[in-house]
Design a protein around this nucleic acid. Structure first.
Lengths: 121, 121
DNA sequence: TTATCATATGAGCAATTATTCATATGTATA
DNA sequence: TATACATATGAATAATTGCTCATATGATAA
């Protein structure tokens, strides 16, 4: 016999307060999208393995593929994604292209992630 | 006339050095997997929006759904994922269940992500 | 108990994505 | 130039995933 069901779940005045929070604190839609896209990049273990190598040294695509035991094509595809997110940069040296970390946010983000998963009981 | 192509791309001795890095610095397979799984959770704008609300206040599922203009089911599914990753916790109060942040790594990780995307030219 | 509200969850579908394969581009060397 | 090496990339495929819909669970009130 449902009637007046448009008023469910707001007995408290949390509702106005909530709307204010969303209006004032929520980033723009484009920033939310960009943030999600950035974290998606970290959400693949192949790319994470690449980053762990780049934490230590600059490396060319071919050596990276061999070190991680994957095909050159697979690594190249993933490097492109990392580069698009500006997490890595590259330089050419002869026939080879060397990749390295673009900045240090990567280290912080990964470090915080490790802390989080290791902290769990 | 391909012969001896098993020696391509290691003119320098970077190879031994690289293998040592991978052996010594690369986390275990399970940690790499867990890390990727954790970051996948951040890789969705709905879950990021939920986290931005939880940065400010504790909130019940129904209010969260209304505030973000999504169905209760969709929000509930995402909260389950956030809870499995121990990013949020919850408590029951009568018929409602209130969700809140589980710890502060979330804030750091999101903050670093924002810094990274805002730093780009 | 019965009815209602709040939340959780399984199945199904559409969209995304990581890898492979084949091939293209770019560089150096013969 | 022609050939080989190093890397990039488009298409195809299999696997993953976010949402919807229907329904189940859990709690409160009549």
């Amino acid at each position: 016999m449902l009637e007046n069901n448009f008023e469910i779940c707001d007995g408290e005045e949390i509702h106005d307060e909530l709307l204010k929070i969303v209006e004032e604190k929520m980033p723009e839609e484009t920033e939310l999208y960009d943030l999600a896209e950035l974290f998606k990049v970290f959400g693949d273990s192949t790319r994470i393995r690449i980053l762990f190598v780049l934490f230590e040294t600059e490396v060319c695509v071919c050596d990276l593929a061999k070190a991680l035991n994957m095909t050159q094509s697979a690594i190249s595809h993933q490097l492109r994604i990392l580069k698009q997110s500006k997490l890595v940069k590259n330089r050419r040296e002869g026939k080879s292209i060397f990749y390295s970390l673009a900045d240090d946010h990567v280290r912080t983000i990964i470090a915080q992630g490790r802390e989080h998963i290791e902290e769990e009981e």
